[in-house]
Protein backbone atom coordinates (compact mmCIF):
# COMPACT_ATOMS: atom_id res chain seq x y z
CA UNK A 1 0.00 0.00 0.00
CA UNK A 2 1.08 3.56 -0.71
CA UNK A 3 2.59 4.90 2.58
CA UNK A 4 0.93 8.31 2.12
CA UNK A 5 -2.43 6.61 1.69
CA UNK A 6 -1.87 4.59 4.86
CA UNK A 7 -0.94 7.73 6.81
CA UNK A 8 -3.98 9.55 5.41
CA UNK A 9 -6.31 6.66 6.31
CA UNK A 10 -4.88 6.48 9.85
CA UNK A 11 -5.28 10.25 10.25
CA UNK A 12 -8.90 10.10 9.12
CA UNK A 13 -9.60 7.25 11.54
CA UNK A 14 -8.00 9.21 14.37
CA UNK A 15 -10.00 12.35 13.57
CA UNK A 16 -13.24 10.35 13.30
CA UNK A 17 -12.58 8.68 16.66
CA UNK A 18 -11.75 12.06 18.25
CA UNK A 19 -14.99 13.49 16.86
CA UNK A 20 -17.04 10.56 18.18
CA UNK A 21 -15.42 10.86 21.60
CA UNK A 22 -16.04 14.63 21.71
CA UNK A 23 -19.71 14.23 20.80
CA UNK A 24 -20.04 11.47 23.42
CA UNK A 25 -18.36 13.63 26.09
CA UNK A 26 -20.51 16.69 25.30
CA UNK A 27 -23.64 14.56 25.35
CA UNK A 28 -22.62 13.06 28.72
CA UNK A 29 -21.85 16.49 30.23
CA UNK A 30 -25.13 17.87 28.84
CA UNK A 31 -27.07 15.10 30.59
CA UNK A 32 -25.18 15.82 33.86
CA UNK A 33 -26.73 19.28 34.04
CA UNK A 34 -30.19 18.61 32.57
CA UNK A 35 -32.95 16.99 34.64
CA UNK A 36 -33.98 14.34 35.45
CA UNK A 37 -31.00 13.31 37.54
CA UNK A 38 -30.66 9.96 39.28
CA UNK A 39 -29.42 10.59 42.87
CA UNK A 40 -29.43 6.88 43.77
CA UNK A 41 -27.20 6.00 40.82
CA UNK A 42 -24.86 8.94 41.43
CA UNK A 43 -24.52 7.98 45.09
CA UNK A 44 -23.80 4.35 44.19
CA UNK A 45 -21.06 5.41 41.77
CA UNK A 46 -19.63 7.82 44.34
CA UNK A 47 -19.40 5.04 46.90
CA UNK A 48 -17.80 2.70 44.32
CA UNK A 49 -15.23 5.27 43.23
CA UNK A 50 -14.63 7.13 46.50
CA UNK A 51 -15.14 4.80 49.42
CA UNK A 52 -14.02 1.48 47.92
CA UNK A 53 -10.91 3.04 46.35
CA UNK A 54 -9.67 4.52 49.64
CA UNK A 55 -7.42 1.55 50.58
CA UNK A 56 -5.69 1.32 47.22
CA UNK A 57 -5.09 5.09 46.92
CA UNK A 58 -4.11 5.40 50.58
CA UNK A 59 -1.55 2.60 50.42
CA UNK A 60 -0.11 3.76 47.09
CA UNK A 61 0.48 7.33 48.26
CA UNK A 62 1.70 6.22 51.70
CA UNK A 63 4.50 4.15 50.19
CA UNK A 64 5.21 6.79 47.52
CA UNK A 65 5.81 9.33 50.34
CA UNK A 66 8.02 6.87 52.22
CA UNK A 67 10.16 6.07 49.16
CA UNK A 68 10.40 9.73 48.24
CA UNK A 69 11.78 10.63 51.67
CA UNK A 70 14.29 7.78 51.51
CA UNK A 71 15.52 8.59 47.99
CA UNK A 72 15.64 12.35 48.65
CA UNK A 73 17.79 11.73 51.70
CA UNK A 74 20.25 9.63 49.67
CA UNK A 75 20.69 12.46 47.17
CA UNK A 76 20.49 15.48 49.47
CA UNK A 77 22.86 14.06 52.08
CA UNK A 78 25.70 14.41 49.53
CA UNK A 79 25.20 18.19 49.59
CA UNK A 80 24.25 18.44 53.26
CA UNK A 81 20.78 19.55 52.17
CA UNK A 82 18.74 17.06 54.21
CA UNK A 83 16.64 19.94 55.55
CA UNK A 84 14.95 20.25 52.17
CA UNK A 85 13.38 16.81 52.44
CA UNK A 86 10.07 17.93 54.08
CA UNK A 87 9.47 20.50 51.36
CA UNK A 88 10.40 18.09 48.56
CA UNK A 89 8.07 15.44 49.95
CA UNK A 90 5.07 17.70 50.51
CA UNK A 91 5.38 19.53 47.18
CA UNK A 92 5.97 16.36 45.16
CA UNK A 93 3.08 14.58 46.84
CA UNK A 94 0.51 17.40 46.60
CA UNK A 95 1.43 18.69 43.17
CA UNK A 96 2.25 15.51 41.29
CA UNK A 97 2.44 12.12 42.93
CA UNK A 98 -0.87 12.00 44.73
CA UNK A 99 -3.05 13.13 41.78
CA UNK A 100 -1.15 11.10 39.16
CA UNK A 101 -0.88 7.92 41.21
CA UNK A 102 -4.52 8.16 42.33
CA UNK A 103 -5.58 8.81 38.73
CA UNK A 104 -3.65 5.81 37.41
CA UNK A 105 -4.87 3.52 40.19
CA UNK A 106 -8.47 4.60 39.61
CA UNK A 107 -8.02 4.10 35.85
CA UNK A 108 -7.03 0.50 36.59
CA UNK A 109 -9.70 -0.12 39.20
CA UNK A 110 -12.70 1.95 38.14
CA UNK A 111 -12.08 2.63 34.43
CA UNK A 112 -11.73 -1.08 33.76
CA UNK A 113 -14.80 -1.92 35.86
CA UNK A 114 -16.92 0.70 34.07
CA UNK A 115 -15.85 -0.53 30.63
CA UNK A 116 -16.50 -4.16 31.57
CA UNK A 117 -19.91 -3.43 33.10
CA UNK A 118 -21.15 -1.21 30.28
CA UNK A 119 -19.62 -3.51 27.65
CA UNK A 120 -21.45 -6.48 29.11
CA UNK A 121 -24.67 -4.46 29.21
CA UNK A 122 -24.15 -3.55 25.55
CA UNK A 123 -23.50 -7.08 24.27
CA UNK A 124 -26.35 -8.58 26.32
CA UNK A 125 -28.77 -5.97 24.89
CA UNK A 126 -29.37 -4.31 28.27
CA UNK A 127 -28.52 -0.91 26.74
CA UNK A 128 -31.08 -1.53 23.98
CA UNK A 129 -33.59 -2.57 26.65
CA UNK A 130 -33.08 0.79 28.41
CA UNK A 131 -34.03 2.62 25.22
CA UNK A 132 -37.14 0.49 24.71
CA UNK A 133 -38.14 1.39 28.29
CA UNK A 134 -38.05 5.11 27.37
CA UNK A 135 -34.83 5.72 29.32
CA UNK A 136 -31.92 7.57 27.75
CA UNK A 137 -28.85 5.36 28.32
CA UNK A 138 -26.46 8.33 28.29
CA UNK A 139 -28.43 9.99 31.08
CA UNK A 140 -28.97 6.77 33.06
CA UNK A 141 -25.56 5.11 32.65
CA UNK A 142 -23.00 7.72 31.64
CA UNK A 143 -23.93 10.95 33.44
CA UNK A 144 -23.85 9.44 36.99
CA UNK A 145 -20.41 7.94 36.34
CA UNK A 146 -19.00 11.21 34.99
CA UNK A 147 -20.37 13.16 37.96
CA UNK A 148 -19.01 10.63 40.45
CA UNK A 149 -15.59 10.62 38.76
CA UNK A 150 -15.27 14.40 38.77
CA UNK A 151 -16.33 14.77 42.43
CA UNK A 152 -14.69 11.76 44.08
CA UNK A 153 -11.16 11.91 42.65
CA UNK A 154 -10.40 15.22 44.49
CA UNK A 155 -11.58 13.59 47.71
CA UNK A 156 -9.28 10.62 47.13
CA UNK A 157 -6.36 12.90 46.28
CA UNK A 158 -6.88 14.87 49.47
CA UNK A 159 -6.65 11.61 51.43
CA UNK A 160 -3.65 10.67 49.26
CA UNK A 161 -1.92 13.98 50.13
CA UNK A 162 -2.32 13.29 53.84
CA UNK A 163 -1.14 9.67 53.53
CA UNK A 164 1.85 10.60 51.34
CA UNK A 165 3.05 13.32 53.70
CA UNK A 166 2.52 10.97 56.62
CA UNK A 167 4.64 8.30 54.87
CA UNK A 168 7.47 10.81 54.36
CA UNK A 169 7.16 11.92 58.00
CA UNK A 170 7.36 8.36 59.35
CA UNK A 171 10.50 7.50 57.37
CA UNK A 172 12.17 10.85 58.07
CA UNK A 173 11.49 10.81 61.81
CA UNK A 174 11.78 7.11 62.72
CA UNK A 175 14.41 5.99 60.22
CA UNK A 176 16.43 9.06 59.27
CA UNK A 177 16.36 10.71 62.69
CA UNK A 178 14.60 14.01 61.87
CA UNK A 179 13.07 16.02 64.69
CA UNK A 180 9.27 15.62 64.61
CA UNK A 181 8.41 19.27 65.20
CA UNK A 182 10.99 20.63 62.78
CA UNK A 183 9.82 18.28 60.06
CA UNK A 184 6.17 19.31 60.49
CA UNK A 185 7.02 23.04 60.65
CA UNK A 186 9.12 22.78 57.47
CA UNK A 187 6.34 20.86 55.75
CA UNK A 188 3.72 23.44 56.70
CA UNK A 189 5.89 26.48 55.88
CA UNK A 190 6.68 25.34 52.35
CA UNK A 191 3.16 24.33 51.43
CA UNK A 192 1.02 26.92 49.63
CA UNK A 193 -2.66 26.80 48.86
CA UNK A 194 -1.93 26.67 45.14
CA UNK A 195 0.02 23.41 45.58
CA UNK A 196 -3.02 21.68 47.01
CA UNK A 197 -5.52 23.37 44.69
CA UNK A 198 -3.55 22.42 41.57
CA UNK A 199 -3.58 18.79 42.74
CA UNK A 200 -7.34 18.89 43.31
CA UNK A 201 -7.96 20.46 39.89
CA UNK A 202 -5.83 17.73 38.32
CA UNK A 203 -7.79 15.12 40.26
CA UNK A 204 -11.09 16.43 38.99
CA UNK A 205 -9.86 16.39 35.38
CA UNK A 206 -8.37 12.91 35.82
CA UNK A 207 -11.64 11.66 37.33
CA UNK A 208 -13.51 12.95 34.31
CA UNK A 209 -11.03 11.33 31.91
CA UNK A 210 -11.14 7.95 33.67
CA UNK A 211 -14.94 7.88 33.74
CA UNK A 212 -15.18 9.14 30.15
CA UNK A 213 -12.79 6.51 28.78
CA UNK A 214 -14.41 3.70 30.77
CA UNK A 215 -17.88 4.73 29.62
CA UNK A 216 -16.92 5.44 26.00
CA UNK A 217 -15.13 2.16 25.38
CA UNK A 218 -17.68 0.10 27.30
CA UNK A 219 -20.67 1.77 25.69
CA UNK A 220 -19.30 1.15 22.18
CA UNK A 221 -17.99 -2.37 22.71
CA UNK A 222 -18.98 -5.00 20.17
CA UNK A 223 -18.59 -8.71 19.59
CA UNK A 224 -19.18 -10.57 22.84
CA UNK A 225 -16.58 -11.43 25.47
CA UNK A 226 -13.63 -10.56 23.21
CA UNK A 227 -15.10 -7.12 22.52
CA UNK A 228 -15.66 -6.47 26.22
CA UNK A 229 -12.06 -7.51 26.96
CA UNK A 230 -10.74 -5.16 24.28
CA UNK A 231 -12.93 -2.33 25.59
CA UNK A 232 -11.56 -2.83 29.10
CA UNK A 233 -7.95 -2.74 27.93
CA UNK A 234 -8.55 0.30 25.71
CA UNK A 235 -10.28 2.14 28.56
CA UNK A 236 -7.34 1.67 30.95
CA UNK A 237 -4.62 2.41 28.38
CA UNK A 238 -6.31 5.50 26.91
CA UNK A 239 -7.23 6.89 30.34
CA UNK A 240 -3.64 6.40 31.59
CA UNK A 241 -2.14 8.15 28.56
CA UNK A 242 -4.63 11.02 28.75
CA UNK A 243 -3.91 11.44 32.48
CA UNK A 244 -0.19 11.87 31.78
CA UNK A 245 -0.83 14.35 28.95
CA UNK A 246 -3.37 16.32 31.00
CA UNK A 247 -0.98 16.32 33.96
CA UNK A 248 1.67 18.11 31.91
CA UNK A 249 -0.82 20.65 30.52
CA UNK A 250 -2.31 21.49 33.94
CA UNK A 251 1.15 21.74 35.51
CA UNK A 252 2.15 24.13 32.73
CA UNK A 253 -1.01 26.15 33.35
CA UNK A 254 -0.42 26.48 37.10
CA UNK A 255 3.33 26.68 37.48
CA UNK A 256 4.94 27.81 34.19
CA UNK A 257 6.65 31.14 34.73
Amino acid sequence: MNPLRAIGAASLRFLAATGRLTVFALSGVGHCIRPPIYPRLILRQMVDIGYYSLPVVGLTTLFAGMVLALQSYTGFARFSAEGAIPSVVVLSICRELSPVLAGLMIAGRIGAAMAAELGTMRVTEQVDALETLSTNPIKYLIAPRLLAGVTMLPFLVLIGDIMGVFGGFVVSVYKLGFNEQTYLINTWNFLEAQDVISGLVKASVFGFLVALMGCYHGFHSRGGAQGVGAATTNAVVSASILILIANYLITEMFFAT
Binding site: T120, M121, E125, Q126, D128, A129, E131, T132, L133, S134
Partner: peptide, 15 residues
Protein backbone atom coordinates in the same frame (compact mmCIF):
# COMPACT_ATOMS: atom_id res chain seq x y z
CA UNK B 1 -41.30 3.68 22.66
CA UNK B 2 -43.52 4.14 25.72
CA UNK B 3 -46.24 2.44 23.65
CA UNK B 4 -43.98 -0.54 22.91
CA UNK B 5 -42.96 -3.51 25.03
CA UNK B 6 -40.10 -5.80 24.03
CA UNK B 7 -39.05 -9.28 25.07
CA UNK B 8 -35.39 -9.69 24.13
CA UNK B 9 -33.87 -12.98 23.00
CA UNK B 10 -31.93 -13.46 26.25
CA UNK B 11 -34.41 -11.38 28.25
CA UNK B 12 -31.80 -8.56 28.71
CA UNK B 13 -32.63 -8.19 32.41
CA UNK B 14 -30.63 -5.57 34.30
CA UNK B 15 -28.15 -7.48 36.49
Amino acid sequence: NAKIGMLFQNAALFD
